[in-house]
Every structure is written in structure tokens, then in C-alpha cells.
Nucleic acid binder design. Structure first.
Lengths: 233, 233
DNA sequence: CGACGCTAAAAAGTCTGACTTTTGAGGTGT
DNA sequence: ACACCTCAAAAGTCAGACTTTTTAGCGTCG
């Protein structure tokens, strides 16, 4: 039984996409649809659909009489969740985590500030629940549970900001956080100071103190950046 | 002669994509590939490729025996440049410009700070050139020329940050800036204070003063936000 | 009367093969 | 050296047949 029953084209993408982002087909190299179809054992129609998707991600460009050319990295749609996933699974996972964390550091404090102004009572309650969950699981090797609350916390902040662009970064942050837990020292409890910061952010948002929410969240993200520096200089 | 000689599927996308983002097919509505193909006068293969792309943008979901369902807005890939373009061309252009400007306000100061540390001498020179160009065209109804330099300036900042996620927002910022010029009072020269701020950012980056570059850029973006508040409360 | 399971049809998915269009490369002539 | 022309390679397009999944409707049995 196949693990994923999605369409054939999706299965092809799951192999071809990572191959490209991993540099197996370096930028500039040219692929032929027919050859790819043969290689992956699918019909040309299926392969064409896969190539179309890669094209919409700016990973490749298809030109008549030439073939499918892999584009330079700078032109890729690095915000496409699928591209992010492929790259996080590949070789330069570390580099990718870093650039995503830097993005996070820029966005999350601003989002927290907005959340302090726009968050609904339900969102405030959810935020507090998440923070309490983090506290409850912050000791005793319960990292998996802790991660769930951590991710939920940041999702609520981004969502409560009321800005759809911020809200859509929830998945990215989730990837970064879970990637961090998976990649790092799995056997160490989270920094108590970070946990406290989350609780205080929840308080600040609840009290509508935008400046404080922003400042505290910035502290969280600079902590994340520092962690990264320790692991990968 | 057709204006665009790109593939048929791209032409279909240019009509179907905007139709969806404009709410012509509201979330939850179901489309049939065969009907769409007939409606647009293309073969099913072409329509299928178009639908695949829309699917990869999370605009629609395709399910057997059901059809192609339009997904809720919150799930759309709002960072996809094509989606951004479609939405900027559509009805809620104003809302879109606002959320993009908020994103800009979060990202650009951070990018400027990083640029102050990482910018190459060439990038510093280019930045200064852009700032001077802005000064030179800041008076006398030369808004089109001014815009070119303005866009170039912000592109260099984002690119010089050394962070690929920031760099890829160059197109978004370009859209926001040009959209602003197009949408606003076309007959008024830019704010002299803003021009001065750009010059000072260039200086700060050149001197490697990250904190100052960040602070000045934040002043620029809060100005942009204020402008937006004046136009659309 | 309700729950369970069967059947049939609807729609997407897949494959194949034939045909068209664009365009780069190489050859030819001036 | 340059312009032009021809040819073939590869993507693009189309039509049709077939497969697979999923759901709605129906009937049977408890």
C-alpha cells in the first residue's frame, strides 16, 4: 500500500522538487519532459503537470526547442511552503533555518504589537492557555508536548495580528520551531527564561500593551537567533 | 496578434486566477474541469495544467467525484507573486496594499540593519546613486523617474541584507511603491523629509551603523503607514 | 424505522498517439 | 564576416479511451 494516495503528479513532485532544491539538477541544467517522464515511469501528461507546478514556483523555466531549465536560486519562490519543506529536508537545512529565523525575528515582534491591539478575547484566552501549557511541560523531558504549545502560541500571535501576510507565516514558524527541536539537543529542557517571556507576552497582549508585547517578543526572537549562532557559527 | 505569446495555460491562468481572487468564484464554490475547458475554449489537458498551478497556490483543491473547490482566502499562498499581482489588480487592492505595507514596515528596518553590516562596497555605491537620483527627481513633477530610483533603493537594501527571504520581497515592495504612486495624488512631489531619510539611510549603511540604518528605515516605513491611514481610514 | 451495505454514476486522474508551433543550430551563399 | 534559409528537436496542444475514487441513492435486513 502506498503511503500517500494523492495524484501521481504529486508523487513525482515529491521526488523531483527535492532533487532540484538539493542541487541534484543545478541551476542552468536542462531537463527534457519526455526523459523525465520515462525516468519516473509516468506519462507525459503527468510530467507536464508536475513541470507546470515547478514553473509556477519559479524553480524551472520551460522553453520550446530547449527544454526545462533549472533557474538560479535567487529566482525561486522561497516563500512557497512546499519549497520551504523541500529545502528544509535537504542539504542546506542549516542555512534555510537561519534565513527563516531572521525573517521570524523581523515579523514576530511587529505581529505581537498588532496582536496587542487587535486580539479578540478568545484569542487572548487561547494565548494564555498556550503559555500555561508551555509552563506545564517545560520540565521533565516533555519536549514534544512543549513544542505543540510553543507552535500554537506563535500561530495565535501571528493570526491575532489581523494581518493576513503575518498570519500565513504560521506554517513557516511551525517548521522552524519543530526543526529546531528535532535538530538540537533533544534531551535538554527549554530555557526557563524563554518560557517566562512567553507568559509575559500573553499578559501584555491581554492588557493591550503593544510596545511591551513587541519588546518581549523581540527578546524571544533574539534568543532564537543567539541559539542559532551557538549551533552554526 | 496576441499580446502575450506564452502558453495557452498561462493565458487561461491570467483570466481564471483573477476571477477567483476577485471573488467571482467565492470560496466553497465548485468548478468542473470539463466545463472550464469548454468555457475557456481549451482542451482538458491545458485546463488541467492551469488547475494544477492554482492548486499549488492553494487557491483551489481538486477532489475526485466532487470537482475543483475554491479554498477559503486564509489558505491562499498570499506570498506568491502571481497571486499578489492578481489581488492588486482586483477589487480589494486597498486592503492588499495595507497588509503589504505592514509587512514592509516589519521587514525593511531589519533588512537595513543587516545591510549596514553586510553590504558590499558596490552595493553601498549603488545605494548612494539611488538616493542621489531620488534627490535629483524629487521636485518638478518627475514622479515616474523618482519612483524608479525609490524602487531601486529598496531593492538594494533588501538584497544587501544577505537574507534570501528579505531579498525576495523586492518585487513586493516594488509593487507597493508603484501602486502607491499610481493610486495616490500623482501631481504632488514626494515628501522632502522622506527623501532626506533615504539619503541618511544610505549614509548609515555606508558607515556600517546598523542601529541608525534600522531606525531611519523605520521612520520611512512609519511614514508610509501614516500615508495609508490618511488615504484609507 | 433505522442502520448497514451495495450499486451505479459522476468527476478527476491517467495514458496514448497524432499533430502543431516555436526556435536554435548549422549550413549556404554573398 | 554577415545575412538568410532550412531542418529538426522539443515543448505545446488536442482528442479520445480508459481507470479510479468517491458519493449519493437505494434496497435490504435487523
Amino acid at each position: 500500500m502506498t503511503v500517500q494516495a494523492r495524484g501521481l503528479h504529486a508523487q513525482v513532485l515529491d521526488r523531483l522538487g527535492p532533487a532540484i532544491t538539493a542541487g541534484e539538477h543545478p541551476p542552468g541544467s536542462v531537463l527534457r519532459t519526455d526523459e523525465l517522464a520515462q525516468e519516473y515511469g509516468v506519462s507525459r501528461s503527468v510530467m507536464r503537470e508536475a513541470v507546470r507546478v515547478l514553473e509556477s514556483m519559479q524553480l524551472v523555466a520551460s522553453r520550446r526547442r530547449v527544454g526545462v531549465t533549472v533557474r538560479p536560486v535567487e529566482e525561486w519562490n522561497v516563500y512557497d511552503p512546499q519549497v520551504i519543506r523541500w529545502r528544509l529536508a535537504g542539504a542546506d537545512r542549516a542555512r534555510q533555518l537561519r534565513s527563516l529565523t531572521v525573517l521570524r525575528s523581523a515579523v514576530e515582534p511587529a505581529a505581537a504589537g498588532l496582536a496587542a491591539r487587535h486580539a479578540s478575547p478568545e484569542q487572548c484566552a487561547e494565548l494564555t492557555r498556550c503559555a500555561l501549557g508551555m509552563v506545564a511541560t517545560s520540565r521533565g523531558q516533555r519536549l514534544a508536548e512543549y513544542l505543540v504549545h510553543d507552535v500554537a502560541f506563535h500561530r495565535v500571535i501571528l493570526s491575532a495580528s489581523g494581518n493576513e501576510m503575518f498570519a500565513r507565516l504560521g506554517d513557516v514558524v511551525a517548521e522552524v520551531l519543530s526543526g529546531r527541536t528535532r535538530h538540537e539537543v533533544m534531551f535538554e529542557d527549554p530555557d526557563p527564561a524563554a518560557v517566562t517571556l512567553h507568559v509575559r507576552v500573553a499578559e501584555a497582549v491581554r492588557e493591550g500593551d503593544a510596545a511591551e508585547a513587541e519588546r518581549l517578543t523581540r527578546e524571544i526572537t533574539v534568543g532564537a537567533l543567539r541559539e542559532l549562532d551557538v549551533l552554526a557559527p
